[in-house]
Design a protein around this nucleic acid. Structure first.
Length: 549
RNA sequence: GGCCCGUUGGUCAAGCGGUUAAGACGGCGGCCUCUCACGCCGCAAACAUGGGUUCGAUUCCCGUACGGGUCACCA
């Protein structure tokens, strides 16, 4: 068989050769020692899974902390599954998390000189490489129909043979030039298959950066390289693209581990150096006592839209993901409270190798920690931005007087012991309802204290209340009215005394004032709240409270 | 079913032949305190299982169980 002749029959339109692509069109990258080139390669299904954020974060960190390149490649080789606007949905999702690319078809236009970065626009490139394989006798056209393939599958099931197109089952493997030419002239559709050099019983080994040594059977299947429409399969596109684009580390979901034998073989026949592989575990979900992959159909938290709707700040989600990726991150964060997460030295080889359960409680905790480090202004801005999208009523309150709103969040913030009771922006509504008259009724709590006694307390308090008091004076006055009410000015005193000696203590006095002004049993610093609210509003609320008792 | 991977407290996890088996989240108790929160102190809670190898196994090897993944002209 004359391979050159066959190649020309199959790919008469290919003028730029694989050799030229390798050496002239896409020259090797000149990068500093140790720089990693990584990539995120989604297919445009329009759905960004939290697992996708996880792997792209890992890719991004590896590239950027090593001074390398992080690129985006769109794997749109399956037209059936493509969703309109899928790419932009994924892009904007990632952008929302602050994950940025150096190369690819980005919002501002295509960046990088290894493009196109969308597989559907690289058809000629794949075909050139396929042509080269035909020339070397490593690829051939296969005219089998779906029915014939089904037939083969059934036979293999019966024979308990390895499934797939290989060995004696590979009918088209040894077609003559004449047969091929005849089929093509007859207009039969065909796919291009690899003539796998693998031997049955052969074993291969490779070292996964995350999973360590992995050993498996050598690939013997004549996998499809080019589908009947001339578009490559994932496997072939991966090998061609990642070698041409100079990817040094392929970091992807571990569902790919079983096809590494195919990929390594592809790099081998293509005469290209394979990248290092790092397979990251999926994020799991607990259900009925067992683990399963987070599913976009069943689990709302699988979609990144969930996090923006709930109002988790992007750093909260990112840091949570980082704690899943590298357990050392938490210790580092405790020791470096002020540094951005990008200062953390991420270790690929320190990643866990089995899937972690997604833990909302932990996310909550990490996110609260993150927000506690925000300035009041940042909390104010982010909360308003969130409310504008997801809670109009709250938005109208918060945006009315931004200075006032910023002061709300300044209470108990910024000091050594910042509050940590906001984990996400949707918590804001409950947190600050009593600062706004129209939200005041929300989350209202009743004091158990006798109504008459409460009236007395407020009556006494109103007499001494002076909005100009500083915090110490303010509190001294709380204590001052205690004796008149039959309350103990000190909690310790109250506890030490015989039961019945006092009706209560200072804490109970302030509890009544707190309830009158905020409608809550618990709030941050009352003095600060009263100052912010202003004396008029405070007095009004206390009077109204008395009326309603 | 074949092949691959995994299994340390409820969860995330250190550990890499000899440890009282870290730490974090969550839970519980306490201290601080005008309440809450923060902070601090403490408690409960784990090496899936059976064989080896070894003076000694959570750590190494084999089997079993369980869990996950994968076997397309999908990625």
């Amino acid at each position: 068989m004359d391979n050159m002749k066959l190649a020309e029959l199959l790919f008469p339109h290919i003028k730029i050769t694989a050799e030229q692509y390798r050496n002239e069109v896409f020259p090797h990258r000149q990068l500093p020692e140790g720089a990693m080139v990584t990539r995120f390669a989604p297919s445009p299904t329009g759905f960004l899974h939290i697992g996708g954020v996880f792997t792209s974060l890992v890719n991004e960190r590896c590239a950027h902390q090593s001074g390398g390149v992080f690129l985006l490649r769109i794997e749109d080789t399956d037209k059936k599954r493509e969703h309109e606007g899928g790419i932009s949905a994924i892009m904007s999702g990632l952008e929302g998390f602050g994950i940025t690319f150096d190369e690819g078809e980005l919002p501002g236009g295509e960046k990088g000189s290894y493009g196109p970065y969308t597989q559907s626009r690289r058809g000629l490139i794949y075909q050139a490489f396929c042509k080269e394989l035909v020339e070397k006798g490593l690829a051939y056209p296969c005219f089998c129909t779906e029915e014939e393939l089904d037939e083969i599958r059934k036979r293999q099931e019966r024979d308990k043979a390895l499934p797939g197109y290989h060995g004696e089952y590979a009918k088209c493997r040894n077609l003559s030039y004449e047969q091929i030419e005849e089929n093509i002239k007859a207009g039969k559709s065909y796919v291009m298959r690899l003539r796998s050099p693998g031997k049955p019983g052969g074993r291969i080994k490779y070292k996964d950066v995350i999973k360590g040594q992995i050993e498996m059977d050598e690939n013997i299947v004549d996998i499809v390289l080019l589908k009947s429409d001339g578009i490559p399969t994932y496997h072939f596109a991966h090998a061609v693209d990642d070698s041409l684009m100079g990817t040094t580390h392929v970091i992807r979901g571990d569902e790919w581990v079983p096809s590494v034998n195919i990929h390594l073989q592809l790099f081998h026949v293509l005469g290209m150096k394979p990248p290092k592989y790092a397979h990251v575990p999926p994020i799991m979900k607990e259900e009925d006592g067992s683990k399963r992959k987070l599913s976009k159909r069943k689990d709302p938290e699988a979609a990144v839209s969930y996090f923006s709707e709930e109002g988790y700040p992007k750093e909260g989600v990112i840091e949570y993901l980082l704690t899943l990726a590298n357990s050392g991150y938490e210790d580092w964060r405790r020791a470096n409270r002020e540094l951005p997460y990008t200062d953390y030295k991420f270790r690929l080889d320190k990643m866990g190798q089995s899937g972690a359960l997604f833990d909302l409680k932990k996310l909550h905790s990490v996110s609260s920690e993150v927000i506690s480090r925000f300035t009041a202004q940042r909390v104010c801005d982010d909360a308003i931005a969130w409310a504008e999208k997801y809670d109009k009523e709250l938005y109208s309150c918060l945006a009315r007087d931004r200075e006032y709103t910023a002061k709300i969040f300044a209470i108990d913030r910024g000091g050594k012991k910042p509050r940590k009771d906001i984990a996400k922006w949707s918590d804001i509504r409950g947190y600050c309802a009593y600062f706004f008259d129209e939200l005041m009724h929300e989350g209202r709590e009743e004091l158990e204290m006798d109504a008459q006694l409460q009236k007395q307390v407020l009556g006494e308090y109103l007499k001494v209340y002076d909005p100009c008091d500083d915090k110490d004076t303010w509190f001294a006055k709380m204590k001052e009215i205690c004796p008149r009410l039959g309350f103990a000015p000190e909690v310790k005193e109250f506890k030490a005394a015989e039961p019945g000696t006092y009706k209560g203590h200072v804490g109970d006095v302030s509890a009544v004032v707190r309830a009158a002004i905020t409608g809550r049993k618990n709030t941050p610093d009352l003095h600060a709240i009263m100052n912010l609210l202003g004396s008029e509003k405070c007095i009004n609320r206390m009077n109204k409270y008395i009326e309603n008792l």
